[in-house]
């Protein structure tokens, strides 16, 4: 018989290195004579899309489009150290460094422009749609390229180097008390599963994932992280296990170490909640790791909801499900 159940899982995750370890990211920014810009960071884009996020941050600040920004990363001869691409830290930490750097380059640009527009304070200057000019007076603006080029002729350049350090403190080694991470990301997921009571096979039919991201800097990438995380969570809950014999890996191959395929993945509905984190770039927090956390719990709880067995050891293989079902039936008979 096939039985269905629904399970819920919640999670939290402290991002960054944590525990007082210096969590520093750095970035260099240069605004070019034609009004485009380059940002250099050590932050490696491992496929999650951090380079796009940095382009968006710089473009936002300079009133440009993302394609006007060149992002170069992960080359030790050219880029400053921005820490590791791990701990869900690049959007938040290096994002903050990039934001500080572009704002620093922008601040000298604004001061220069204020002089040009006879504006007593740079507060009165804005960057928008590739132009720089006086706030509230659309007749007084020039293409950003013209102003930057003119500035070069006068010996002024708009370049910057900045660093950003996340806050955390070491915990007390005796009591574990302290503030080891900041910020924390939260999330919850539900899974609907179908358990075949004859074969023990669990099929995940649907996962709904809701994650707290502070601010979604790029909703497409948020959805991509969530679907990827859920799928790794399904593998963790149901399929993946490195089998060891005296320290030797018995299944060092994709034919024997199984990861989810397109057919193992259910309908995934991804939602995000935006509750700005004041210390994050534009309110953003990281999502990379949190996206996979609740899945395992949602699935294990759904299995219990479906067939009334509590799996306490993952992966929840068909053998474990059948064994648990047999034990449960045995118990029922005894009573």
């Amino acid at each position: 018989m096939k039985k269905r159940g629904i399970g819920l899982g919640c999670s939290w995750y402290g991002t960054g290195y944590g525990n007082g370890f210096p969590d520093v990211s750095s970035a260099f920014v240069e605004i070019h004579d034609d009004g485009s810009a380059t940002v250099l960071t050590g932050a490696v884009d491992v496929g999650q899309g951090s380079n796009s996020i940095f382009a968006q941050i710089v473009a936002e600040e300079l009133g440009l489009e993302a394609q006007d920004i060149c992002v170069y990363s992960g080359d030790t001869d050219a880029t400053p150290d921005s820490g590791t691409t791990a701990a869900t830290r690049q959007t938040y930490n290096t994002g903050n460094a990039v934001l500080k750097a572009v704002r620093q380059a922008k601040s000298s640009l604004l001061v220069y422009a204020a002089r040009e527009f006879s504006c007593p304070t740079s507060e009165g200057i804005e960057l928008k749609e590739g132009y720089i000019g006086v706030k509230g007076d659309p007749s007084r603006r020039v293409p950003l390229a013209d102003l930057v080029f003119q500035a070069r002729l006068r010996g002024e350049r708009f370049i910057s180097a900045e660093s950003s350090t996340a806050r955390s403190t070491p915990v007390d080694p005796e009591t574990g008390q302290g503030a080891p991470y900041w910020p924390y990301s939260f999330g919850c997921q539900s899974a609907e599963v179908e358990v075949d009571t004859e074969t023990g096979v669990v099929q995940v039919l649907k996962v709904v994932a809701v994650h707290d991201v502070g601010k979604a800097l790029n909703p497409t990438q948020v959805e991509g992280q969530i679907a990827g995380g859920v799928t790794q969570g399904i593998g963790y809950a149901l399929l993946e296990e490195l089998e060891l014999n005296e320290g030797k890996i018995k299944n060092p191959a994709f034919s024997s170490y199984l990861i989810p395929t397109a057919l193992d993945v259910p309908n995934i509905e991804a939602f995000f909640v935006e509750d700005a984190e004041s210390t994050g770039p534009f309110g953003a927090k990281g999502l990379g790791e949190p996206a996979m956390l609740p899945t395992v719990a949602a699935i294990i709880n759904a299995i219990d909801d479906a067939v009334g067995v509590r799996i306490t050891s993952i992966p929840a293989t068909p053998e474990k499900i059948l064994k648990a079902l047999a034990e449960k039936n045995g118990e029922v008979k005894k009573h």
């Binding site: 884009d45 899309g49 380079n51 796009s52 382009a55 968006q56 941050i57 473009a59 936002e60 440009l64 489009e65 993302a66 394609q67 992002v71 601010k215 979604a216 800097l217 790029n218 909703p219 497409t220 990438q221 534009f282």
Partner: peptide
């Protein structure tokens, strides 16, 4: 305007 939008990845 750019932050929060569905910018496609250059790579």
């Amino acid at each position: 305007s750019v932050v929060g939008s569905r910018v496609t990845r250059e790579d």
